[in-house]
Write a protein that binds this DNA or RNA. Structure first.
Length: 640
RNA sequence: GCCGGGUUAGCUCAGUCGGUAGAGCAGCUGAUUUGUAAUCAGAAGGUCGGGGGUUCGAUUCCUCUACCCGGCACCA
């Protein structure tokens, strides 16, 4: 007698242990047909799973998030099946589910081409149509290793060999194809209807760059065709808001071959930058930071003392002069310590906070460069707080508050918090790590933030909080950070005189809100699809005359607006008004002012807002007030 | 750095199975003086990323190299 409790609370009893399918069937044939898997006491199982004892069971269908996972996982297997049937020499490795889809890594003697991908996708559709049953088998580990070796699947054999001896492993068989897998899987290949192969790319075996490179085929899979279509549509939209494309279209910046990973900022792009920098400068000032500026190039000996020369030599740009070696700074902290060290500090000076818009250069691997998101020459809104151990907590709480406020001002309401704890390779006593980690955890609790922990992801000198924001289309970007450092102050000889009249080494907190200015601007552009809020827009309004008769008046209007402190241009070209409006609309300007004879006669301006909204006629002063309100509201964080 | 794919006019992109290239938009010149997302016409614009090779001939084929794109690895 087995009794099974369903999600609605109903309990069904069975004389014989039933399978998930049988339970579903007892509820209704429609459900049995829709069942993809079962969830037994929270654990996912195949529909063929036999339930031997009293449990809670949910039938998983494609309406269930878990059901979609199963579909994607099974589609990855279908991909491997198709590849093996078209290219028997290819070896299979792993094929997990990822956001929106799955991938599968293969070892194959030649690269897969786009034509191969099309053929594989076609084969997958055929195999799905055959509706082959997907059956689970349990083998002993050693038998499985021997089997996979015998069929030339050496990667698979290696994976299984890593499983503890004596443990059984599960294999799934569909048609000719057998794969090691934890499961669960859909009951038959016919359940896989909506999928598409997306791209092929290289990926290291076991994620280690010392290993050989495999070929990874990415795919997407969905329960419903409409879901896939809307996903593909979303990708297209994301492509349209690519910051590199917008950078060109809006004439903000460019990058060229002679300076890989370094940005040429055009006037409009630099206007955006300056808005952000000036804003952050106020944030420094209002939160007890003093702005400083350090040299770009520092002698090698300093980098040796800081440890960078040893750890990051290959990633630093170096130069030499008169028998001395120098490095272009990859970080601002050693410079800030030099300022701290210039003079005898008292415990009464702490916490001492320095901020800098520090231009740094890191020789990033060529393959990692990406638009202005990952570059070699970047600028951090970088600050360092010198404090005592007892001050860490308060400083972290204060920093989190500032960061939340800033993100909100920029239009980001969702922040994700992670604490990265001690890595295996680290410096400093464990007692210090305990204290630092606890301070970070406690600070987030005090700030009322839910957080995740990334074990082992801290820097070698200390743990950190990583702050990520979520953008308008749901992508997550890590921007801010605060890191506790017990190490560098000591290495660079930072000291203060304590209450006890003895010398002590201060703790240093490394912190950034935006991270890299370049990257943050890239994120802003993608978030707003180039239509930056008025306070950030490089050009806030353009004044357009309808014909030459109003040119002088239009110019006067533009001049007045400029004098009121706004970034305003005039477009007096002899073109049709529709032509000008179209051009400036494509440039995504917040406002366009149309000046015709009527406006000129009445000493008014006609305002058109972004998106085509006609705000009607108003006086120039009223428009100035509108702009002021627009910017003030944005900066106080009440609206976007 | 690794695997794969790219690089053609200012921008977006065609094209040449090897015979020194084409469109739209922008820019220039002229006409048009215009009321809320493209007025018309004309002329002009390219060492087809760079080096080397094969060839009677290379933008096209081969090779090296730089950079870009997609992943992977890395990210103090």
């Amino acid at each position: 007698m087995v009794s099974i409790k369903l999600p609605d609370g109903a309990v069904r009893t069975f004389d014989q242990p039933p399978t998930v399918t049988e339970v579903a069937m007892s509820i209704g044939p429609g459900l049995a047909k829709a069942a993809l898997a079962g969830r037994v006491n929270g654990r996912l199982v195949d529909t063929s799973h036999r339930i031997e004892s009293d449990v809670e069971l949910a039938i998983v269908t494609d309406k269930d998030a878990d059901g979609l996972e199963v579909i994607r996982h099974s589609t990855a297997h279908l991909l491997a099946f198709a590849v093996k049937s078209l290219f028997p020499e290819a070896q299979v490795t792993i094929g997990p589910v990822i956001d929106n889809g799955f991938y599968y890594d293969f070892s194959f003697k030649r690269p897969f081409t786009p034509e191969d991908l099309a053929a594989i996708e076609k084969k997958m559709a055929e195999l799905a149509k055959q509706d082959l049953p997907v059956q689970r088998e349990v083998w002993s580990r050693d038998k499985a290793v021997a089997f996979f070796k015998s069929i030339g699947e050496f990667y698979k054999a290696e994976l299984i060999a890593a499983i503890p001896a004596g443990e059984d492993v599960s294999l799934y068989r569909e048609g000719e194809f057998v794969d090691l897998c934890r499961g669960p899987h859909v009951p038959s290949t016919g359940r896989l209807k909506v999928f598409k192969l997306m791209k092929v790319a290289g990926a290291y075996w076991r994620g280690d760059s010392a290993n050989e490179m495999l070929q990874r085929i990415y795919g997407t899979a969905w329960a419903k065709k409409e879901d896939q279509e809307s996903y593909l549509h979303m990708l297209e939209e994301a492509e349209k808001r690519d910051h590199r494309r917008l950078g060109t279209q809006l004439d903000l910046f460019h990058i060229q071959d002679e300076a890989p990973g370094m940005v040429f900022w055009h006037p409009r792009g630099w206007a955006v930058w300056q808005q952000i920098e000036q804003y952050m400068r106020r944030i420094y000032r209002d939160n007890g930071y003093q702005e400083v500026r350090c040299p770009q190039i520092l002698d090698r000996s300093l980098w040796e003392r800081s440890g960078h020369w040893e750890n990051y030599r290959d990633n630093m740009f170096t130069t030499a002069s008169e028998n001395r070696d120098y490095a272009v700074k990859p970080m601002n902290c050693p410079g800030h310590v030099q300022i701290f060290n210039k003079g005898l500090r008292s415990y009464r000076d702490l916490p001492l906070r320095y901020g800098e818009f520090g231009s740094c250069h890191r020789n990033e691997p060529s393959g990692s460069l990406h638009g202005i998101m990952r570059i070699r020459g970047f600028t951090q809104d970088d600050g360092h707080v010198f404090c005592t151990e007892d001050q860490i907590l308060d400083e972290c709480v204060a920093f989190t508050e500032v960061l939340q406020r800033v993100y909100k001002h920029f239009g980001f309401d969702q922040v994700i918090y992670k604490v990265a704890t001690r890595p295996a390779k680290r410096v400093g006593a464990d007692a210090l790590w305990d204290k630092a980690e606890q301070a970070l955890f406690e600070s987030l609790r005090r700030s009322g933030c839910d957080y995740e922990v990334s074990p082992g992801d801290g820097a070698f000198y200390g743990p950190k909080i990583e702050y990520s924001l979520k953008d308008a289309i749901g992508r997550v970007w890590q921007c801010g950070t605060i890191q506790v450092d017990f190490n560098m102050p000591q290495r660079l000889g930072a000291e203060y005189v304590g209450e006890d009249n003895a010398r002590h080494v201060p703790v240093m907190l490394h912190r950034a809100v935006l991270g890299s200015m370049e990257r943050f601007i890239g994120i802003l552009l993608e978030n707003h699809a180039g239509a930056l809020p008025t306070w950030l827009a490089p050009v806030q309004a353009v004044v357009l005359n309808i014909s030459e008769h109003q040119a002088e008046y239009a110019q006067q209007v533009a001049l007045n607006l400029q004098k009121s402190g706004f970034r305003v241009e005039s477009d007096l070209r002899n073109e049709k008004i529709t032509y000008k409006i179209r051009e400036h609309s494509l440039q995504k300007l917040p406002y366009q002012i149309v000046i015709g004879d009527k406006e000129k006669a009445a000493n008014l301006v006609a305002v058109r807002a972004r998106g085509g909204e006609d705000l009607g006629q108003m006086s120039s002063d009223a428009f100035v007030e509108m702009l002021q309100r627009d910017c003030a509201l944005a900066v106080s964080g009440h609206t976007a």
